[in-house]
Nucleic acid binder design. Structure first.
Lengths: 229, 229
DNA sequence: CGTCGAGGTGACAGTTTCGTGGCAACTGGT
DNA sequence: ACCAGTTGCCACGAAACTGTCACCTCGACG
């Protein structure tokens, strides 16, 4: 799942340089020369981040950022502004417009990539933080730990997410497809039988303390997490 | 390391004014417009103090404070409530909100800063000055020393800050990004893998006295400091 | 009892993640 | 200028994790 970045910059030289750097860093880049072109691209691909030049012909970067933030579909997309000079006033005005960070030209490819990563990791927080407990089996998302009557239980990341999903949705049958959507994520193609394998691994992980039987097979339908037999 | 303050306030004008004042006083400020945003910020930056508006869209300031105080990991963070002058003030003070202080709007920046410093002095032996000890490993922020069963432990400044952050927030997983934000600083752009290197150096430093195993790897998530295996 | 489909199980190879040593750049003191 | 300590980054290898497959077991049903 490649991270998509929309670059809006009118100078071809800079645009190419940025394109190269980001592509080399593993990002998927979409280029636009103007705000208008940026908007039409926005309709085709929703990017994970927008790199926006401060000075643009026609619609300025500020205008573009303001319009972005108004659109509920795009308002969560972080914006990094490219400015020519580190003018303090410009920065303040930019901040009001909703930009998440500023990079002043000239900049090194390394710095640009680094700051993009920094903005991206701030934009995506982690999931819920409530401790879940069923029948002595405790799962703590904050410490990312599972204990069975205070004994540590080891499992892989996928098993952890699977168990977390089960424990927050107990007593309910899920098909393999639903589990794939909720635990693996949409837009990923994985064989449904793979769910069986991870169910097996999860069962083995929590088996030690009589906590098997918690993950139940519903023949012909899917799986269920329940304390009742 | 700079004192971090989380400001939760929906009015942009007040938020900016507070931001300016606190930044001028040497604090590191994080802004949030709503309780929800505040919580997600809380996940990334653990602040030393929270400045909380009483009237918030959605989750009210009271709700937010209560939820904070319920979380054992955040319950030690002092909270200052911002209230409008008038009829609300008395009600708020009467409620069991868990706030450490109240500041009524309108207020002067000078007053706000001095109240913040007062609360920090009063409530912060936990946060930055007190000696922390876990399992015979003692860290003294004032004398900048770490001892393991009275034997001095040597490490670099970055390892010291990393260990201090870990010891004041044990039993919780932090992603590399969160560690970068909280130990290195928000406006620093460093590769996430660099965290691994300093984790290694920290482990090597405290390894001598059986105090490895304290810094634990959580595969796919980040690192955790815990006395439990 | 035999058949058949659904689910369980163990193994395996590709991929991802993490640990580790080394190195160049930088800093502050002499 | 030199030296010692620190820092960030890279490259390599080890270890863990993942998705699939082939094969086995189980249960329902005629």
């Amino acid at each position: 799942m490649a991270v998509k970045i929309l670059v809006i910059e009118d100078e071809a030289a800079i645009r190419e340089m940025v394109d190269m750097s980001l592509a080399a860093a593993g990002f998927e880049v979409f280029q636009a020369e103007s705000g208008e072109e940026g908007f039409s691209l926005l309709n085709e691909h929703v990017p994970d981040l927008i790199l926006l030049d401060w000075m643009l012909p026609g619609m300025s970067g500020i205008d573009f950022a303001r319009r972005i933030k108004k659109d509920p579909l795009c308002s969560d997309i972080p914006v990094i502004m490219l400015t020519a000079r580190g003018e303090e006033e410009d920065k303040v005005r930019g901040l009001d417009s909703g930009a998440d960070d500023f990079v002043t030209k000239p900049f090194s490819p390394r710095e640009l990539v680094s700051r993009i990563k920094a903005v991206l990791r701030r934009a995506s927080p982690m999931s819920s933080e409530e401790v879940v407990e069923v029948d002595g089996l405790k799962l703590d998302p904050l410490s990312h730990r599972v204990t069975a009557h205070d004994n540590k239980v080891d499992m892989g990341p996928t098993e952890f997410r699977l168990l977390h999903f089960f424990m927050t949705h107990p007593e309910r049958v899920f098909t393999r497809g639903q589990l794939l959507d909720n635990v693996w994520g949409t837009n990923v193609y994985v064989e449904e039988r793979t769910v069986d394998v991870h169910i097996r691994r999860l069962r083995k992980a929590i088996a030690g303390s009589g906590h098997d039987r918690l993950v139940q097979t519903v023949r012909g339908a899917g799986y269920r997490f329940s304390a009742k037999p």
